[in-house]
Design a protein around this nucleic acid. Sequence first.
DNA 1: TAGATTGTTAATCGATTAACAATC
DNA 2: TAGATTGTTAATCGATTAACAATC
Lengths: 213, 213
Amino acid sequence: MPSPPKVPIPTLERLATYMRMLVELSSNGSATISSAEVEVCTGVDASQFRKDLSYFGMFGKPGVGYDVASLQRKIARILRIDSPQPVVLIGAGNLGAALVGYPGMAEHNFEIRAVFDNNFAKIGRKLWDTEILDINDLESVNREIGARIAILAVPSSAAQEVAEHCVRAGMDLILNFAPTHIKMAANIFVRDVSFLQELAVLSFHAGPSDDHS
Amino acid sequence: MPSPPKVPIPTLERLATYMRMLVELSSNGSATISSAEVEVCTGVDASQFRKDLSYFGMFGKPGVGYDVASLQRKIARILRIDSPQPVVLIGAGNLGAALVGYPGMAEHNFEIRAVFDNNFAKIGRKLWDTEILDINDLESVNREIGARIAILAVPSSAAQEVAEHCVRAGMDLILNFAPTHIKMAANIFVRDVSFLQELAVLSFHAGPSDDHS
DNA sequence: TAGATTGTTAATCGATTAACAATC
DNA sequence: TAGATTGTTAATCGATTAACAATC
């Protein structure tokens, strides 16, 4: 079997950026875009953009550029958001509420299909339109939903245990908002959203001997 | 002037991870830790950890390891969170509320000193303990606070304008939660928190021909 | 056609990993 | 001292950038 050229993670991250831009452009009625224009819109180097797409085959016409609509469709298919991608959210706290209420989620075709919590005071109540379910029903509910993606918006102290529970319920792709390292088998894919890290990077540059160069 | 060896961004991100770990450890009463143990706790390669610290000078004793308390102090100083780091938050929506209510912020010595919004219905009301201020008072209020870090929790459509306003108010380090590219002068440092990107990376791996290898 | 812009290869850059002499 | 673990150098790896022939 010829090993499929594997795609760098930074490339995948940028695909999401391109997607965003294309959605905006198509609502503006733009028909085509060049890699140079992409650079202006997104800050991603034109060469980088073309290289990123090259991992997936051909997309543009030399001398013309890229068709906005078709490029959008192709990237959506690559990222598996050409049809709604079901997602399960664990944790109905402040952050969970913000995520459920966040319009960008649906705009990108991610569908939060269920919200779980372990707090009896919350179970049965609603977060926006979605009823908060008992975490103990995770397996049975996900047998219906079939989500592979779990979003963890729980305290650090609970993250490891909850992640393992998600795996038992059939999920293998985990987005972790808790500021802690989750240990998982190699076939489980974990990504962390850690704005404290980003804040630290900024804060470092608040040093007096730092000129941002 | 001998050019100071500049520190890779990934190294700075990992410093925040080490910080987290050290806080946990010191509450457990651990006195020292080896780079091998750091690897177990955080998932960061032992060699990587030692290399990261090497950018800042010596921290450990060969044959013994690192003193937890002193390492914590040193990293805190590097990241400018040895004393409270003032931060301004723009946007009192769901996400803003989650951020203000997030205990990890204070634990890491980031202090949200003021919250701003442009919505008259919100201005004057309280977000937890903090009064929501008029965005038009940004300059005058920050003359008091002297924050260099701004957190943007505003819609994409407002992000560029608000960022420019922050710069006029004296801030030069911007944490952007809006899923859009902000164009700034080279002396302004912008970091994006983009969980949609992380979600896209996961979603890509939901492909049928993907085995996470 | 001439001008523009792609897809791809090669060169550059930078970060991670491995190895080991120095040190406690 | 002997064993353990650091700090640092060198080797590896992978991503970004630049250049250009191919193409519309």
